[in-house]
Design a binder for these strands. Sequence first.
DNA 1: CGAGGGTTTGAAGTGCATCAAATAGTGTGG
DNA 2: CCACACTATTTGATGCACTTCAAACCCTCG
Lengths: 248, 248
Amino acid sequence: MSCSSAETQTFVDIPEALRRLVLFKGVSDETLARFSQEGRLFQYPKGKLLYLQDDEAKSFYLIVRGWVKLFRETIEGTEAVIDVLTNGHLLGKSAVFNNGLHGASAECVEEVQLISFPIRLLKQAIEEDPKLALNMLTSMSAHRRQQGREIEHLNIQNAPQRIGCFLLRLCPLNKETEITLHLPYDKTLIAARLGMKPETFSRALAKLKGETGIHIHGSTVKIHDMQALVSYTCSHCSSTFPCEDLKG
Amino acid sequence: MSCSSAETQTFVDIPEALRRLVLFKGVSDETLARFSQEGRLFQYPKGKLLYLQDDEAKSFYLIVRGWVKLFRETIEGTEAVIDVLTNGHLLGKSAVFNNGLHGASAECVEEVQLISFPIRLLKQAIEEDPKLALNMLTSMSAHRRQQGREIEHLNIQNAPQRIGCFLLRLCPLNKETEITLHLPYDKTLIAARLGMKPETFSRALAKLKGETGIHIHGSTVKIHDMQALVSYTCSHCSSTFPCEDLKG
DNA sequence: CGAGGGTTTGAAGTGCATCAAATAGTGTGG
DNA sequence: CCACACTATTTGATGCACTTCAAACCCTCG
């Protein structure tokens, strides 16, 4: 396994990490063992490019720690951020159905630990293990629904509402009381993720603050009236509040 | 099979129609026969609602003729058009992975002929026939890529460019010479499909005309310089021109 | 012919982008 | 611990794109 720049290896229980994934739920021990055996842990610094759009996909990855940005860019250099992924998310697996090519580029947003697996294992396992194929279908379907919501958001939510929606998806669902949370990555990236400019993000966040009484200090957000945030944000969306989340 | 309003039955070769679908490629004759046997042809008038978002899905559908609008709406009544489908497209199948609920509403845009199949057949067949599961994965994956492109378009293309992209996807790829085509459904609906208002569509189309030399008369579009259209449109997109299409 | 929906046009407003500059925050070396 | 460099974030001023509201036009169909 040849790898370019600054990466170190630490201990991670790969079989255990795999077992926790929805994608591998109910999958045969043999299959799991094969993945475990060929999985390799890496650590990459901020800025490390994992792969480029249209690269041939040799591996797919499970993120163990840190954030990875998925993006595509036009000839003119404009960049569209597709998604930003972290712990427990899988990366690059859909190349299996894309002629073996990556559909987007992936870059580490900060120091990242991930496990890489040969993508041929996945391709093979999907064909041989029907359970894995079903899991893949479930996960892909959830992803599709999520994308559908995003298309809708871009169409009918304004900037402050898109931010509200982003914040709500960070909230733990159980507690009723005041919620404090931290923005998971920097505001510029959140802005790009939501399809807006940093300046717009800043102003929209200020507006959201005024409209819903949330409190912001740096990357800390305090929500004391969840209901106000939900009603301001979700009125312009066809989904009802606790929107499903997705991993894998 | 109970059905509400004005529908009539005509002859359609259901086994043949199924065989043409990518989704059923390589699927066992037995499975195909089961679907054929339970498939029912219907004809619905313009405006007919096939199902509503969050309805329990009893059937999925294969469109034989006509156009069907897929949409979702907010509590406040704003409508987002997800997609508009026609001949050879399947409708409602993803409910299998959505707890048996439809993820969007579906309405006939004009007189429509379609074949309905019990969705339980599909659910069952996916679990029993690995080939069908794989086909489903392939088709879902293509759909996901398409959605990805749409998210990108909403982010980085302007209105005239989105229309240009829409037109390009209607063009046959072989011929080099002048292309004449007809808008497949009315402009108001195209506008909604592209995430803009009818007025914007009208003005943006006029602008596109000025920029690329296309000619428009009613619903007829003449493109004499394909290259001009491609370069105006696709410069703000991360995909290169002949974007893949998808059915099923 | 007249009604009604689809389409276009005009005038005015809103939201987001852009450009420019100030401010806050972070990490570095001294 | 401070000064500097550099980046992230905010703020202000201005412009463009798309929307909104209103009205005209056009086409089809009864």
